[in-house]
């Protein structure tokens, strides 16, 4: 039942909004993985980020893709956690963990060949600005699966359409720059830093109008 609802939600609501009202300019679409396991790592400005990244994968493969999200935020009440878990399909991580491995569900999903979405800034932050440092979670996940590809992605425009703390959606074309994947095998301990600099480099490829 929830699987059907999830499919309908993305087919009838999310994709029309994203492809018709919003509009995407995707650079290097062909780099995206055809199959999991893989992780898409992007800068984070808006709740729309997750929905846009999920819309890049064909609808027929919707069941393969899951965003990784903070349990304390998305599971804070019953209705929201039903929506987050069943419809969006998040994989919750506990930021303040009391025992147990907070990443266990993430590891399970990777073992099942899923494509995960992760925002290593840890927060949506200021619109159209990226945090100077990423959280190390991505490296800890990749360390366990050293040959899994991790795709750095730069998103622009969604912080203008629906920034943190705003309820009014205003359409702007969204730019998505997909970078070359990297793996823990090649990057090792420098991985988090390398992803950060790749996303920064992707951002520098574009030319964006001022937003002050």
């Amino acid at each position: 039942m929830s699987r059907l609802l999830r499919f309908l939600f993305f087919a009838l609501i999310v994709r029309p909004i994203i492809y018709v009202l919003l509009g995407l300019n995707v650079r290097n679409y062909k780099r995206l993985p055809n199959k999991g396991p893989a992780i898409l790592v992007a800068n984070h400005n808006s709740h729309l980020d997750t929905l846009v990244l999920m819309s890049l994968i064909p609808l027929s493969r919707l069941s393969e893709i899951h965003p990784v999200a903070a349990a304390d935020y998305f599971l804070r009440n019953k209705l929201l956690s039903w929506f987050a878990l069943e419809i969006i399909g998040i994989i919750p991580i506990r930021r303040a963990s009391k025992g147990g491995n907070p990443l266990r569900l993430v590891f399970d999903a990777i073992q099942n060949g899923k494509i995960l979405i992760l925002f290593p800034e840890g927060t949506r932050g200021q619109p159209e600005k990226m945090e100077d440092q990423f959280k190390e979670g991505i490296r800890l996940i990749a360390r366990k699966f050293p040959d899994m590809p991790v795709y750095p992605i730069f998103l622009h425009g969604l912080g203008k359409s629906l920034p943190k703390g705003e309820g009014l959606f205003v359409p702007f074309f969204c730019d998505i720059f997909i970078g070359e994947p990297l793996t823990y095998q090649e990057s090792g301990k420098q991985m988090t830093q390398q992803i950060h600099s790749r996303i920064t480099a992707l951002a520098a490829e574009g030319q964006f109008p001022a937003w002050e």
Binding site: E166, L168, W211, E212
Partner: peptide
């Protein structure tokens, strides 16, 4: 129009005006 608004420099304060 959306393309035009996405190209020009805009002010954060004007989101509601653009709406």
């Amino acid at each position: 129009l959306k393309e035009f608004f996405s190209l020009i420099p805009t002010r954060r304060a004007d989101r509601r005006v653009l709406f």
